[in-house]
Each structure stands twice: as C-alpha cells, then as structure tokens.
C-alpha cells in the first residue's frame, strides 16, 4: 500500500528521512520550503542566494535529521533555527566580502509573492497578523533590536553601537522582547502552515 506522505506528521516524516526516504524529504520540502525561502529572501534580498540557502537547509535535514530531538523543542523551531543561522552566516560573509552595510531597517523585499492556495494563504495571513500585532505591541526600542538582529543580522554589540545604547540595555531589550512575543503567541501559533 502506498504511503500518503501529506497525512504524516513532521516527526514521522523526519523518521522516514533518517531511513533515507527521499519521498518524505520531498513532502517536508513542499511543506516548509516556501517559508524557509521567504525568510532567507527577506533577509538577503537575493533570490539566487536564498535558493542556495534553502537547498542547504533541507540537505542538512536530510543528512543530519537524526540529530533532532523532540526534547530540544518543536521541529519547526529547529528547522527555522537552521534556516536563520545559515542565512545570517551568508549575510555576514557578504558584508565581510563587500564591506558594506545593508539598507535601512524599513526596506522591503522586491521578490514577487508566491502563488499559494487560498487555504494556505488564509493560514499564513492569520499567523502573519498575529505576529505583526504582537510585534506592534512591543515598545519601539524592543522592536528595533529584534528587527536589527533577526532581519538585519547585526550582533548585539553592533546594535549597541548603532543605537548608541549600552550593551546591557540591548541584551535586556532582546530578552524582554522575546519573552513578550512568546507570551503573546504561545497559545495561538500552530506548528504547521
């Protein structure tokens, strides 16, 4: 009997991937590939490099999926942690190579929106709205350190220099922002899109 991979949970797919099941990998990619690509593209603003990052992320899952443990947290947290790590590495490498800074904080991505199903779109819009509202509720200085670090790839020391604030202030703002985000969203965000 053939397996309907679309009905399998993320962890079931991951177990199959550990056993070298490429169809499980394909399903996982179909499930999260767009979101990983969109995150990377938002940060790098470069579709070609973002595609390379996306491929690297899923190759990591393919080759090191067995290193994931549910005790460490949700699967998506692990996946997007890899994606963000890899993207920021690429961003910093570029900065070193080109010795230049990115544009202002409020720039926006010039990549066309994807064709997604109405259901996916509704879910994505819903999650987007929740996170956007939670971010909007943060004090401006806390929101700024989150944006500068997560989307601009600045280190906390660089943020302290850019905002002319003590390093301790930056660390405190990061902690408060993440805790508030988590409290605001923990009961609302579901694991899968």
């Amino acid at each position: 009997m053939s397996t309907n991979y679309q009905e399998l949970a993320d962890l079931d797919l991951l177990e199959l991937i550990s056993g070298r099941n490429r169809d499980a990998l394909a399903e996982l990619y179909d499930r999260y590939g767009r979101r990983v690509f969109a995150l990377s593209a938002r940060i790098l603003n470069d579709p070609v490099s973002s595609e390379e990052v996306t491929q690297d992320v899923f190759l990591s899952v393919w080759r090191r999926g067995s290193s994931y443990s549910a005790a460490k947290g949700k699967f998506t947290t692990w996946l997007f942690s890899i994606a963000h790590n890899r993207t920021i590495d690429e961003l910093r490498k570029r900065r070193r190579d080109r010795n230049r800074q990115n544009d202002d904080i409020d720039d926006h991505l010039s990549i066309e929106s994807a064709e997604i199903s109405p259901l996916e779109n509704a879910v994505a819009q819903s999650e987007y709205a929740k996170v956007r509202d939670a971010m909007a509720d943060l004090p401006a200085e806390q929101r700024q350190v989150v944006e500068l670090s997560y989307f601009k790839g600045l280190t906390q020391a660089e943020i302290a220099e850019k905002t002319e604030q003590p390093l301790g202030t930056v660390k405190t703002r990061m902690r408060l922002a993440l805790k508030k985000l988590r409290n605001a969203l923990s009961s609302e965000i579901s694991a899968a899109v």
Binding site: L25, D30, P47, T54, A114, A134, R182
Partner: peptide, 28 residues
C-alpha cells in the same frame, strides 16, 4: 528552547515567496 520558539515566530513576518522548481529538483 523558549527563546528559540519565540524567535521562530518572527519567520511569519515575511512576504510569501516561491523558490524556483530547480531547488526541489537539485535537492532530490
């Protein structure tokens, strides 16, 4: 773990974008 889960939510703040079919093909 709690901080990472909060950070993951930030990934919802991006515009949806589609990688080319080539990525999937090369990955597989």
């Amino acid at each position: 773990r709690l901080l990472l889960e909060a950070a993951e939510n930030l990934s919802y703040l991006v515009t949806h974008a589609e990688p080319s079919e080539r990525v999937r093909r090369l990955l597989l």
